[in-house]
């Protein structure tokens, strides 16, 4: 490798993963995908204009393509791979499946994280709040309709689930 290289360790989904002799210019997206074998964050624009590479960095939703991997040391990185597997889908993942929110699926991992982020912060968002929260995640297949429906279903399920715990109606 010509140019500056760097070795460091990243905390990804609770695992300490070494990165050896990486080119300084590598984004976290590249390192996740090509060095650490975590392709769930997708590469569609590499300039923060599509949200396909959304991940959590210290619990904050960001585009991995805008994070310099060598600067992501001592931060907790959470990817879609850490959110559920085939046997343990998150409620958002399950709702995306059930409502037909997935077509080609390229935007899906980023959107799932964006929806988790929204609903963790705002449990009962208005329709406009949902649209604004996912406005940084481009989808070219669905026209967003089924994705918005998936969010509504998760909202309904979560509020139903919290009912028996005695929250006021």
């Amino acid at each position: 490798m010509t140019g500056a290289t760097e070795s460091y360790e990243l905390d990804v989904d609770g695992r300490a993963l070494p990165v050896a002799a990486a080119w300084l210019g590598e984004s976290l997206l590249y390192v996740l995908r090509e060095r650490l074998g975590l392709p769930g964050a997708k590469n569609a624009c590499e300039q923060g204009e599509c949200g396909s590479c959304s991940i959590f960095l210290d619990d904050v939703l960001v585009n991995a393509c805008c994070v310099l991997a060598a600067d992501a040391t001592d931060a907790r990185i959470r990817t879609v791979e850490g959110f559920g597997d085939a046997d343990h889908l998150s409620d958002v993942q399950a709702a995306f499946l059930g409502t037909g929110a997935v077509q080609c699926g390229f935007c899906t991992p980023g959107l799932i994280l964006a929806v988790h982020d929204l609903l963790d912060q705002v449990p009962d968002p208005t329709g406009l709040e949902v649209r604004e929260a996912i406005s940084g995640n481009l989808c070219r297949c669905t026209g967003y309709g089924r994705i918005l429906q998936a969010v509504e279903e998760v909202k309904a399920t979560r509020s139903g689930a919290s009912g028996p715990r005695g929250e006021s109606p």
């Binding site: 995908r33 975590l38 392709p39 769930g40 964050a41 997708k42 590469n43 990817t79 879609v80 791979e81 959110f83 559920g84 597997d85 085939a86 889908l89 993942q93 399950a94 995306f96 499946l97 059930g98 037909g100 997935v102 699926g105 390229f106 899906t108 991992p109 799932i112």
Partner: peptide, 20 residues
């Protein structure tokens, strides 16, 4: 309205796109 057979890998980030 049957679910997609490739839906689970797509929502978990394990579906292999050509770029992966």
């Amino acid at each position: 309205s049957v679910r997609r057979p490739d839906g689970t890998p797509k929502v978990t980030g394990t579906f292999a796109f050509s770029s992966d």
